[in-house]
Simulated scan of single mutants.
Amino acid sequence: MESKVQEQTTPKDLSSEAPGTLTKSSSMGDQPWQEWVAPVVDILAKVPEYVGEFFSEYKQPLTTVGLLLLAIISVKIIVAVLGAIDDIPLLAPLLEMVGLGYTAWFVWRYLWKASNRKELLAEFDAIKNQMFGDNA
């Protein structure tokens, strides 16, 4: 009878080493959800490593795909801006007139006479040498 009273007053969760401290229950590790949690935690812990390996292995194709997407997005933005400019009254015809005027000036200044064409070629060669060096 004395042992029965002692069992009732000493709960299983209390530590006998230090009064008032709880011990780990052995039944906590036997729960079925922990069988599924451990592999998921392991996989999630290795995700940065997997991503790093993937990017290091496929660096050039990913760069190419990224540049293609960037080019497509840039073209769409430019088309949208030009469409918005075209919707402004009198601005599109004004810009067309400016473009035609500059084209006429360029033809008159550089392409009309042979001496002016030689001058234009000399300017192109100077720019090419400045950019790529004298060996180009």
Rank of each mutant, 00 (worst) to 15 (best):
Val40Phe: 02
Ile72Ala: 11
Gly20Leu: 09
Glu123Asn: 12
Ser15Trp: 11
Pro11Lys: 09
Gly66Pro: 02
Trp36Tyr: 07
Glu7Ser: 08
Lys128Gln: 14
Trp105Val: 15
Val81Asp: 00
Ala18His: 06
Thr64Gln: 05
Phe55Pro: 00
Leu82Asp: 04
Ser74Glu: 07
Gly66Lys: 13
Ala45Ile: 03
Pro39His: 09
Leu82Ala: 04
Phe132Asp: 07
Val81Ala: 05
Thr23Ser: 10
Leu69Gly: 14
Ser15Asp: 15
Glu119Val: 10
Leu111Gln: 13
Ala45Trp: 04
Met97Phe: 09
Thr63Arg: 04
Gly29Gln: 13
Pro89Tyr: 01
Leu70Phe: 11
Gly20Tyr: 13
Ser25His: 10
Ala38Leu: 05
Gly52Cys: 10
Ser26Arg: 14
Leu111Met: 06
Trp36Lys: 14
Pro93Phe: 08
Asp30Cys: 01
Met131Gly: 01
Glu35Cys: 02
Ile88Asp: 04
Tyr50Ile: 12
Trp108His: 04
Leu44Tyr: 02
Leu121Asn: 06
Gln130Met: 09
Phe106Trp: 10
Thr21His: 02
Phe106Lys: 12
Ile78Asp: 01
Asn135Phe: 07
Leu111Gly: 05
Val40Asp: 03
Thr103Trp: 11
Ala104Gly: 08
Val107Ala: 11
Ile77Cys: 08
Asp42Thr: 12
Val41His: 03
Pro48Asn: 10
Val65His: 05
Ala18Gln: 11
Trp112Tyr: 00
Ile88Gly: 03
Ser26Ile: 06
Leu120Cys: 03
Glu119Lys: 11
Glu2Phe: 01
Pro48Tyr: 04
Asp86Ile: 07
Val107Phe: 05
Ala122Met: 13
Phe106Gln: 08
Leu70Asp: 12
Gln60Leu: 09
Asp86Leu: 11
Lys4Tyr: 07
Gly52Ile: 12
Lys46Ala: 08
Glu35Asn: 04
Leu90Ser: 11
Met28Pro: 01
Trp112Phe: 02
Ser56Val: 09
Leu70Trp: 12
Ile72Gly: 05
Leu91Gly: 01
Glu96Arg: 10
Asp86Asn: 07
Val41Ala: 06
Gly29Trp: 14
Phe55Tyr: 03
Pro93His: 05
Val40Pro: 00
Gln130Glu: 12
Glu49Arg: 02
Ser16Arg: 10
Ile72Val: 13
Ser115Met: 09
Phe55His: 01
Ala80Met: 13
Pro19Glu: 04
Leu111Ile: 14
Ser56Trp: 13
Val107Ser: 11
Gln34Asn: 08
Phe132Gly: 01
Pro61Tyr: 09
Ile77Ser: 08
Leu111Asp: 07
Asn135Arg: 06
Ile88Met: 12
Gly83Trp: 00
Ala104Ile: 15
Gln6Glu: 05
Asp13Glu: 15
Pro89Phe: 00
Tyr102Met: 09
Lys128Leu: 15
Val75Trp: 02
Thr10Asn: 10
Glu123Pro: 00
Leu68Glu: 09
Glu57Trp: 02
Glu2Tyr: 02
Ala122Tyr: 00
Ser3Leu: 07
Ile127Cys: 00
Arg117Val: 12
Ala45Cys: 02
Lys113Trp: 11
Ile77Pro: 00
Tyr102Phe: 07
Trp33Asp: 07
Leu14Val: 13
Ala18Tyr: 05
Ile88Phe: 06
Gln34Phe: 09
Thr63Lys: 04
Met97Leu: 12
Gly83Pro: 04
Ile73Trp: 05
Lys128Trp: 09
Ile88Gln: 06
Glu123Thr: 14
Phe55Ser: 03
Gly20Arg: 03
Val98Pro: 00
Thr23Met: 03
Glu17Lys: 11
